[in-house]
Amino acid sequence: MTQSDAPIFEVNAVSQEYQLGSSLFRRRYLRAVDDVSLQLRRGEVLGLVGESGCGKTTLAKIMMGLIQPTAGEVRLNGKRLADVPRLEVASRIQYVFQDPYSALNPRHSVGRIIEQPLRIHGVGAAADRAQKARKLLDVVGLPQRLIDSPPSQLSGGQRQRVVIARALALRPDILVCDEPTSALDVSVQSQILNLLLDLRSEFGLSYIFVSHNLAVVEHMATSVAVMYLGRIVEHAATADIFGNPQHPYTRALLHSVLAPDPGAGIPDLGLGRTVPNPAQLPTGCRFHPRCPVAVPVCSTKEPARGRGERWAECHLVEGSASAAA
């Protein structure tokens, strides 16, 4: 897999604010995504990791052009996403859903679902489309006999294969996979991960792989972005994130991975009892109320924003802009 240097997909200083209801004197905003920049090169798999409410789903939707960010821009092959026609965006970047039960129209057959994108784009005649749908079934490893079945007759893993087949119908360059295996059983999870890996090498796909499961991300991703309350607090190549995590939050997340290890017990993450609330961001570093190694400056001053290939937004990290200052 070659990785050309120019990014095929860029997120530049994107923010997303939601208004939480306004009174006469005061308006409250929820900053779901706060000044996020990311790049994706051809063949890369960017793991996007974080807990619920950290903004990773909002970010994924912004990347798909489903939400217009309140600030910043997304660029696809150098062009602003907002300027690219709807159908062209659809043929370049597609989405794999978390819940394969909700992602398939229960009233359509598998074949109809897979050829739906072709139909919307007016590709080929009906016979061609049916032909393509059959081929896609092969590609994702589903038997041909399922083509006329409704989704209700499929298992979770089979449904997720249909979701993937549909996403591939337009031959996109990028798949945004939003927790693609978290609704599936473990024995099926590995099948879907294997399929995604095969498809990547076969079609030269790039992935944005959103997940809370760090073990899966470590296996799948070439680089990882760790998100906390709307910001990417650490970004690095996969080996660096897992081998040498810098940000205390990343370290806590890694500790929380419970690999099978009888007798190892449950690790103490030292995160305390504070629950992160995106509607009320703390002053200074947004992680400091839970941070086990926080120092006084953390509650007053926000760490310098990370740039480049590897960063950790923490006052305590050597080499981060704020530690040098």
Partner: peptide, 10 residues
């Protein structure tokens, strides 16, 4: 999600 899927397909 299948409505979102249709939107994503354009």
């Amino acid at each position: 999600d299948f409505i979102v899927a249709a939107k994503v397909q354009g």
